[in-house]
Design a protein around this nucleic acid. Structure first.
Length: 824
DNA sequence: GGACAAGTATTTTTT
DNA sequence: ATACTTGTCC
């Protein structure tokens, strides 16, 4: 069973290339001609025996069938998950266990073996990247033998595959008018727009944005939406929530007035729609017979509810989850949805994917030591057949600069010695702020690197401005876009004028764009109930702006999207505004050309439709294909951004208390568990080599402070580790600092002498160190101990001393009552 | 309307 | 330290 067949040659008389209809096969359900060219047909046929003839409407064709058993590519656990034909399935998948493979093969299985039409399948991911990856893996050539993927391009197209948000947007685009007061031409507000609108809402309520941070209020409202709590039912429990409750009402009515939905609304409104309209729900339930959800542990309440509604009739929900990789609870993700799944679908099949195809045994074992300390989890028995590999390197750097030097030197060393490509290395950290020091070091050493994250393309000011113009043309009631561009470039409409305009529009009970129309009417001699309040100069400026908008809106349905784009930038003066002759101006213009390139993909579409689709894509996709960084250097990224990726060599830096685990998680057990998962996610990205770095001291918010190494390091057993044991582990073995390892001939040299080779070796300090690494010292209070690290500062020497009974202490040579054994 | 000073807050950020 | 916002002055 499970054979995917491909027919390369067909001998036939009566079949024309236009025969795209499914072929009716003897004893087999269906196959589809996929790419007819001349007399050669590619046909994907589900089949488990050799077939010599097929019948198409009574016509028999002779063909040669080559077969491939797609299921043979799976391990028993994976195969089990793929093959379940009906009912809910929960797949608990460890890192690197091939869950994308299971998802894609299941889609293939359902289509080819179960005879489910591709358009009856919905596959949901969290990121565009994951969706893209699934698409690629469904169709791309999978091996050198020339096999096509699991689906034909045509089948893939009919599949509902996308992020929660994009799927909801598609549904709402069709159905939202079933909810009173909404219009199918809604725009989608991204994070920045949402914040602007939040500020507007605060201002409308005379609340001080200083006192009530828009981001904080927004986060409360967002959380409420994710739990499907509407503005009317929101129950405040604290003073801030009291404020948030009031803002929520205003914020939501602003969205309505602007005919806009924010990200959370996309989910919430879809749930609302299905809850209120049984008929629609039923239709969608029958349309999507199978729903597959990736990263199920990351679903929030509204996503869970949505999925539950959709599969309510047929109960064919296939969810892949790893509770140990749940790292987005602060965004409303709730891994307990996995538990809810088990309660709500008691008849479910449970499949565990425990074989890891990514990491060495050493790395996987080390990661398991970290994660197993979390209570309340189903312990998976992860294993790998990759062999032991090398030990995990744990090392202490003097400070974050030293840490960066270690990373860069080690990457260079691996490249020279082990022929490891720098692009196969990744450096991961807890906070984005940590990237700067690393970048500086890469630059100093003249090495390329890729900063994963960057300012995202669609978040660049010029791109947002251009999009705001287009959005305004699409939906003139969009006040966020209106306020964004009304005076960009400057056209004499200042804050005073804008405030007066808003106020006037408010009194007229119309949107700003309608107010501009009224102003034009007034200028043409028409009387108004409330005359406009502007001085001559402001009026002039506003009228010119109104004319601009009118011109552009009139052009909307006449031009192709790239033409409209060009016209907009030219007429608005934005083009000249950006191209100001500076270097930065050229860069910004480059970005706009890049954006124009995106509009070109929509050039052939109907004018009215193209703008809508383009704006949707822009709102829901945060990066542009092909625009991603070049692949040459090592990747620098946050631990969050690392999820779903893998690298042969991984460095995790900043394993210091306060950073990882982060300070903010210290007094919250749940948050601390999430920090642990975050560490686990980072470690399990590594295929061959894993480095865990911490520092002796570190600059935090400008202040230089002694570090305490992460509690996570203390959870690693000695047999998996190379390099020093961590100080948190309490072992007082001789420690090799990074510096002494880099320059073994000068084992006792202070750590600061990290730079190798080049001439910038730190000169020996004039105040000669009193203690050397390895010295035995006597402390009046702690007794005898061994110096294990040493660092010379401007006017002092800092040492760490291992006392057999007291553990490791950090001491100042000047002040500590301590001296070398045998002296004094 | 733009430049500068002062004040403030600094985790992560799939959409 | 630093980046970012807001307020004030020309």
């Amino acid at each position: 069973m499970g054979v995917l067949g491909k027919v390369s040659h067909v001998e036939h008389d009566n079949v024309r290339p236009a025969d795209h209809a499914p072929l009716i096969l003897s004893s087999v359900r269906a196959g589809v001609i996929t790419s007819p060219r001349e007399s050669v047909f590619d046909i994907a046929i589900p089949c488990d025996y050799n077939l010599s003839s097929i019948v198409n409407g009574g016509v028999t064709m002779n063909l040669r069938l080559e077969t491939r058993d797609a299921l043979a590519e799976l391990n028993p656990q994976q195969r089990q998950a793929v093959q379940i034909e009906h009912g809910p399935v929960l797949v608990l998948a460890g890192p690197g266990s091939g869950k994308t493979r299971v998802l894609t093969h299941r889609v293939g299985f359902l289509v080819h073996e179960s005879g489910v039409a591709p358009w009856s399948l919905m596959a949901v991911t969290f990121t565009n990247k994951a969706a893209r990856e699934m698409k690629e893996r469904l169709t791309s050539v999978t091996s050198a033998d020339g096999w096509d993927g699991l689906l034909t391009a045509r089948q893939l197209q009919s599949l509902m595959l996308g992020t929660f948000h994009s799927i909801c947007a598609r549904i709402l685009r069709r159905e939202i008018e079933a909810l009173p007061g909404w219009d199918r031409n809604f725009v989608i507000y991204d994070a920045g727009d949402q914040l602007s609108l939040m500020r507007q809402a605060l201002r409308d309520l005379n609340l001080d944005a200083k006192r009530y941070r828009p981001a904080a209020i927004h986060s409360i409202i967002s959380n409420a939406k994710n739990e499907l709590i509407g503005p009317g039912t929101f129950q405040a429990r604290t003073y801030t929530e009291e404020i948030a409750a009031r803002v929520y009402l205003r914020y939501q009515s602003l969205l309505r007035e602007n005919n806009a939905l924010d990200f959370d609304d996309l989910l919430m409104k879809t749930v609302e729609l299905f809850r209120e309209r049984d008929d629609l729900l039923s239709a969608y339930q029958d349309r999507y017979l199978h729903v597959l959800v990736d990263e199920f542990q990351d679903t929030n309440m509204s996503q869970y509810e949505l999925v539950k509604l959709l599969v309510g009739k047929h109960r064919n929900l296939f969810a892949v989850a790893d509770e140990d990789q749940s790292i987005y609870s602060w965004r409303g993700a709730d891994y307990r949805n996995v538990l809810r799944f088990r309660d709500d679908f008691p008849e479910h099949h449970l499949v565990l994917l425990e074989q890891n195809y990514r990491s060495t045994t050493t790395i996987l074992e080390a990661a398991k030591y970290i994660i197993r300390k979390n209570p309340h989890r189903v312990d998976k028995n992860l294993f790998t057949q990759r062999g032991d590999g090398v030990k995990v390197e744990v090392a202490e750097a003097y400070d974050e600069q030293d840490e960066a030097r270690f990373v860069v030197s080690e990457i260079a060393r691996l490249e020279a010695g082990s022929k490891v490509l720098p692009s196969h290395c990744a450096v991961m950290y807890r906070t984005n702020a940590q990237s700067r020091v690393l970048e500086e070091e890469f630059i100093r050493r003249g090495m390329k690197y890729r900063l994963v994250r960057g300012t995202r393309f669609y978040e660049r000011k010029e791109v947002k401005d251009a999009i705001a113009y287009l959005r305004l043309i699409y939906n003139p009631h969009d006040s966020v876009s209106m306020l964004r561009v009304i005076n960009t470039p400057a056209r004499g409409i200042g804050a005073q004028t804008i405030a007066a305009l808003e106020h006037w529009a408010f009194k007229l009970e119309v949107s700003i764009s309608d107010a501009l129309l009224k102003l034009q009417a007034e200028a043409n001699g028409q009387g108004l109930p409330i005359p406009s309040p502007f001085g001559a100069r402001a009026r002039q400026a506003l009228l010119r702006y109104a004319d601009l908008l009118q011109t552009l809106i009139a052009a909307r349905d006449q031009l192709t999207l790239p033409e409209l784009f060009d016209l907009t930038l030219a007429r608005s003066g934005y083009r000249d505004f950006v191209r100001d002759g500076t270097r930065e101006g050229d860069d910004r213009w480059e970005n706009l050309l890049e954006l124009r390139g995106v509009t070109q993909e929509y050039a052939s579409l109907d004018a009215s439709e193209s703008l809508s689709l383009f704006l949707e894509q822009v709102a829901l996709v945060s990066d542009v294909d092909g625009l991603t960084e070049d692949q040459r250097g090592p990747a620098l990224l946050t631990l969050h951004a690392a999820k779903g990726l893998e690298f042969p060599v991984v460095f995790i830096v900043g394993l210091d208390e306060g950073l990882l685990p982060h300070m903010r998680s210290m007094d919250d057990l749940d948050a601390m568990e999430e920090e642990r998962r975050l560490c686990y996610v980072g470690m399990t990205r590594a295929m061959d080599r894993l480095y865990l770095l911490h520092t002796f001291r570190r600059t935090i918010h400008g202040a230089n402070e002694l570090s305490v190494s992460s509690r996570f390091l203390a959870d690693l057993p000695a047999n998996l580790i190379a390099g020093q044991p961590s100080s948190a582990s309490g072992r007082d073995t001789q420690r090799a600092t990074l510096a002494s390892r880099s320059a073994p001939s000068k084992g006792a040299r202070p750590v600061t002498g990290w730079a190798r080779g080049s001439g910038d070796v730190t000169p020996p300090p004039s105040n000669a160190p009193r203690f050397q690494v390895g010295d035995t010292v006597v402390h009046t209070k702690f007794g005898e101990g061994v110096v294990i690290t040493s660092n010379i500062t401007d006017d002092d020497q800092e040492v760490e001393v291992a006392f057999p009974d007291q553990g490791i202490k950090r001491l100042s040579a000047n002040f500590a009552p301590m001296q070398k054994k045998g002296e004094g």
